[in-house]
């Protein structure tokens, strides 16, 4: 079982990277990745939210939604849990690590609308993972996201000194760069674990 778990985590990080293969988590990926330091911070926050929400949401789904035949309420329930978690983190940071809070600015509440977080928990349900698998998947998906965002921040720092055509400056160039990284990660696709 440990092997299976490790394979699952590895594939979430590299083979089916959340940002570069599944396209989940693109908005902050393109928005926050300008400075590596901010990227690391964002990555940590997202990892925390994704891991904890995977746990909580698994419990809510298995012990409340399914037994009471309320599966159709999953979208609402999940997004509310995520929103509450993010709110909690915001208050926590504001009180204990205000520097980080200011650094994040608007991106912290934006984790609520991060496709990666909701996407991860929805995938957990879809694949029918149990508790340990759900939490591991959420955690590794977040690690994959963090990896992508840090890599990207490094690249964007260099891109600042490039001289692209006017129309390409900023996001369009970032998208093309992301495409090239995605190509690199495609190299991992050949590895498959059944």
């Amino acid at each position: 079982m440990i092997t299976e778990l490790l394979l699952l985590m590895l594939s979430a990080v590299l083979i089916e990277n959340f940002v570069l293969s599944r396209f989940l988590g693109c908005c902050p990926f393109l928005g926050v990745s300008e400075k590596p330091a901010a990227a690391v911070g964002m990555g940590c926050a997202v990892t925390f939210v994704m891991t904890v929400s995977s746990a909580i949401i698994y419990l809510i789904y298995t012990y409340i939604l399914v037994p009471f035949d309320l599966i159709y309420l999953k979208t609402i329930a999940f997004i509310l849990v995520i929103a509450a978690l993010v709110q909690f983190i915001e208050l926590f940071l504001k009180k204990f690590i205000p520097v980080l809070y200011n650094e994040f600015g608007i991106f912290l509440p934006l984790i609520t609308t991060n496709c990666a977080v909701l996407g991860a928990v929805l995938l957990n349900i879809e694949k029918g993972y149990d508790f340990i698998y759900s939490v591991s998947f959420g955690f590794s998906a977040a690690i994959g996201f963090t990896l992508a965002i840090i890599l990207f921040a490094g690249i964007r720092e260099r891109l600042e000194f490039a001289d692209p055509p006017k129309a390409f400056r900023g996001i369009p160039l970032a998208l093309v760069a992301a495409g090239l990284i995605a190509m690199a990660f495609t190299g991992f696709h050949g590895i498959s674990f059944s």
Binding site: V66, D69, I71, Y72, L73, I76, G128
Partner: peptide
Amino acid sequence: VLMLSVINLFTSDLIEEHEPDSVA
């Protein structure tokens, strides 16, 4: 939630047909 429950009443059978819930 009420609105969703109403819609669920109409659609849950059709959804069961197409996608049997693995858990339930």
